[in-house]
Design a protein around this nucleic acid. Structure first.
Lengths: 350, 350
DNA sequence: TTATTTCATGCAATCGATTGCAAAACAAAA
DNA sequence: TTTTGTTTTGCAATCGATTGCATGAAATAA
């Protein structure tokens, strides 16, 4: 079956004006060797015929699609959608489109997505690695296809990819130190799987802050969960409530876990921040809406996306991946809100 | 400059096996006329050479990219990212990719995005219209290019596009009726620009519920703002607090406005839900995290995305847009939480 | 053995735009 | 008028995969 309305191509324009497709092509792209008169005629005819360029044909010829592939664990998490927003902004300003895929934190889906993106001939890929992933072979294919790769947030070294992360160590350090300075002494930590760098580093920052301030590290105060969702935060809090003495503060490596812990603590009659100080991580929008407002660590997600896109575009322009991959590290900012600020606490009293 | 590693194509495989590219192509796609032996040899050689199909070339030849374009006002709103998630799920199951663009609620960007998507030869487009848009000519180009278009949520009739929406009227009705049944009498409404259908219908539902229950419609209780963001909710509440008598409940056409109103009301010492009942709209995740938990209207966003994608894919398969565009209407669900449920209210007392 | 099917592969055009090189058209200089 | 130089346009190959049709090979029937 034929498609109803045949698309008009440069051949149609050429025929209508009794010139060649090459001239039409050049006229449309304002090639300097084409006379002003011809350009005007071509453009007028193109408009008249409702011509729209076939980007696919151009992509095939040029070997460039002007599409960059993005893979995130999920789009419906504020952090990732903000990063995407940042990527999209930079990309579209540079004339690039963004093809989004989601891994749902599954390694199998992740590998399939990479295949798809490569098949689509994206000019480069920006990705954040699925939680589940421990074998990274599928990422190697990207470089094997000579396509640049930039990883952000959940990254992995030695894949020949540039990376953009925040300093998670510092984030953990800031959060913990802040709690210490507010006079909290028994600070628990809700962490994630330690094979994932971001959680490992946040954990280290936590440890280091304790150590710097002379507080002993107590492993029973550190709970690890796979997903750090609200549920995990509640479960973690439940567990922490078994301890004697109780912890007097929590630094959670995720806002979701933090808010879960906060919910349960409140249900059990603990007052935040008087009895329990809480700091989360990521500055998800809801942290500013819960009660009390929750302290957290801002990751500068949109900026992270922008940097990732800029790095990738630079690689694309150079026609090849960076020989020495770049490592970009953003500095997180601690956002202190009511959940961790003791109203009448005087630091001098310590 | 040459690219470093030339991609391997079906020609390379053909040469290596002394057969023709056509055979290779057919072997790779499991064409029935190719012998099992040849298929095996081809596939083995393909794997050995690290062959990856060039989707662009195939797309050009077939006139089909297996990419569907999606345009949303913004990705970093839970509602839209959930819809995208729904779209992505259905699409990828059907072997389609999803190209995302954001209009940032600007008509100019919207038009530019449509140009880009068409140039990329997407097989169809799913979109939600920018708030700012009142002239829809740019959407007509899509049908002119013989590409199907499906609109969701913020839709417009007479564009030859199928639409997927929830019954906003019903959503408004449910929310308002619920407040009435909880004994609230002076119910205010925070609405958006009335040229946008969703706000117009939510408003009508509100009116109709009042009327059904014999409550007179008081225009001074209905405030309109452009964006219905948190700020607008606060401003609206401020204004409502000037009234005598005060309203005793608010139905906001957006969760953001609702939470803004709730914040300000609490700051002014009003108790929720005793002094003021509140219902929002969209079931944004934070509504379940604020205090008190906020009642709202669930829009079934992921399902909306799935339906939109299924409708579009059906159109794509048929090679042409629906002659008679479909209108799919989902039924919203009211989610009642603490913000609108009076603890000891007995409906018999009315 | 020859004729007839069936099966497997090859040929060559095609999708639509881009681009190096050749050539024509025109202008300016000799 | 011829030569040299500039502009402007055309020719034809190319990007990589797909596919209708033709052809060759193998298998079966006569």
């Amino acid at each position: 079956m034929q498609s109803i309305a045949a698309m008009t191509t440069i051949y149609d324009i050429a025929k209508a004006l009794s010139i060649t497709p090459s001239t039409v092509s050049r006229a449309l792209s304002d090639h300097p060797h084409i006379s002003a008169r011809t350009k005007a005629r071509v453009k007028a005819k193109a408009a008249q015929l409702g011509y729209r360029p076939n980007g696919i044909a151009a992509a095939l010829r040029r070997g460039k699609t002007f599409i960059i592939g993005v893979m995130v664990p999920t789009t419906d998490r504020s952090f990732f959608s903000s990063v995407i927003r940042g990527i999209e902004g930079v990309a579209s300003k540079a004339g690039f489109n963004v093809l989004i895929t989601q891994s749902n934190d599954s390694t199998a889906v992740e590998a399939a997505n990479i295949d798809t993106l490569l098949k689509t001939q994206v000019d480069g890929i920006i990705a954040s690695i699925a939680k589940e992933t421990t074998d990274f072979e599928h990422f190697r294919k990207i470089n094997a296809q000579n396509r640049p790769l930039v990883l952000f947030d959940r990254v992995k070294e030695n894949l020949g990819a540039s990376t953009v992360v925040i300093d998670d160590y510092l984030g953990g350090y800031y959060a913990t130190e802040h709690l210490i300075q507010q006079g909290y002494q028994r600070i628990a930590h809700l962490s994630g799987a330690q094979h994932i760098n971001i959680y490992k580093y946040r954990h280290r920052g936590y440890q280091e802050a304790l150590s710097t301030h002379g507080i002993p590290y107590d492993p029973s105060l550190v709970l690890e969960s796979n997903h750090l969702e609200i549920q995990d935060g509640r479960a973690g809090m439940e567990q922490l409530l078994q301890l004697h003495p109780l912890p007097d503060a929590i630094f959670a490596a995720s806002d979701f876990a933090a808010v879960g812990a906060m919910q349960l603590a409140k249900e059990k009659g603990l007052r935040i921040p008087q009895d329990l100080g809480i700091v989360g991580f990521a500055n998800e929008p809801f942290t500013d809406l819960v009660e009390p407002r929750m302290s957290t660590v801002e990751q500068h997600s949109a900026q992270m996306g922008e940097l990732a896109a800029e790095t990738l575009l630079a690689n694309i322009q150079k026609q090849e991946p960076d020989l020495v991959p770049k490592k970009l590290v953003l500095t997180p900012s601690l956002i202190t809100r009511a959940s961790s600020v003791r109203p009448n606490f005087n630091i001098d009293r310590i």
